[in-house]
């Protein structure tokens, strides 16, 4: 009965739950799914992290390469995030060039990196106008069940914290770069941005951490990114139905709480790896 109702009238099905302040999967409106973080899962990458929020699974690998700095900013490096949504993660994605959602997510990640200053691009410069690091942050979704952006941000920050780059110096005589693979050091991750996504139902009900189904049925989506100092880095609402500033404020408060949870998670997990050594 319920299954039939769900298939025939998915929106009504969800509404009947929301009326009772709960959701079909048993969560409250303001409750996130279990978030699991595993770092260092790719041994060939310089840094990596695997994040699961409920069923949504995202893996991030960081690879550093040497290159020459951009002409307009000779003492900075590059951070190049790329979000890939392959057909394996959901039937809604087709093979071929990245679709709109993947491109928008990549741009979102680039904006998060820039706005939150999670890593200063100047730190990636080795020798002014000569040599710098380019960090390729490849984020791949393995299972898509909504709330992609939150998972991506956690994966990125954790992978950056996990990343270790070898020491590089320029030999004065030969003018060539020398890589010392024995000496590796961590990146200077200054900020810990954490994002929290919200979905708006029927112009008024706000739920956190929407699943894929909730995302398609909702009338608007919103993502708030904060750092550990309660500073907002992003308030990304790509359209949809409008929200009052009071509702926005509630969302921001929830995002701040979420930041603490996830911040603790990332720290504990990173520490656990270090003590392991």
């Amino acid at each position: 009965m319920a299954a039939g109702f769900k298939t025939a009238e998915p929106l009504e099905y969800h509404r009947s739950f929301l009326k009772e302040n709960c959701r079909p999967d048993g969560r409250e409106l303001g409750e996130f799914r279990t978030t699991t973080l595993n770092i260092g899962s790719i041994s060939t990458a310089d840094g990596s992290a695997l994040v699961k929020i409920g069923n949504t699974t995202v893996i991030c690998g960081i690879k550093g390469e040497l290159t020459s700095p951009p002409a307009d900013a000779p003492n900075s490096g590059y951070i190049v995030p790329n979000v890939d949504l392959p057909p394996l993660c959901s039937s809604k994605f087709r093979p071929g060039p990245p679709g709109e959602q993947a491109q928008a997510a990549s741009q979102f990640m680039a904006d998060v990196i820039e706005s939150s200053e999670v890593l200063l691009k100047e730190d990636l410069c080795i020798e002014k106008a000569k040599l710098c690091w380019v960090l390729y942050c490849d984020i791949m979704c393995l299972d898509y069940d909504g709330n992609l952006l939150d998972a991506c941000v956690i994966a990125l920050v954790a992978a950056l914290k996990n990343a270790q780059l070898p020491e590089v110096s320029i030999n004065k005589d030969t003018d060539l770069a020398e890589v010392n693979t024995d000496k590796k050091r961590h990146l200077n991750v200054a900020k810990h941005p954490v994002s929290s996504s919200f979905a708006v139902f029927d112009d008024s009900i706000v739920i956190v951490d929407p699943t894929a189904e909730e995302e398609t049925l909702s009338t608007a989506m919103m993502t708030v990114v904060t750092d550990e100092n309660e500073t907002l880095c992003m308030l990304h609402k790509p359209g949809g139905t409008s929200l009052s500033s009071e509702k926005l404020q509630d969302c921001i408060s929830r995002a701040v709480t979420r930041n603490r949870e996830v911040g603790k998670l990332i720290n504990t997990v990173t520490q656990s790896v270090e003590t392991d050594k």
């Binding site: 799914r33 973080l37 260092g40």
Partner: peptide
Amino acid sequence: GAGQVGESL
């Protein structure tokens, strides 16, 4: 290297 937060779903 593996941790979890949240106890709901």
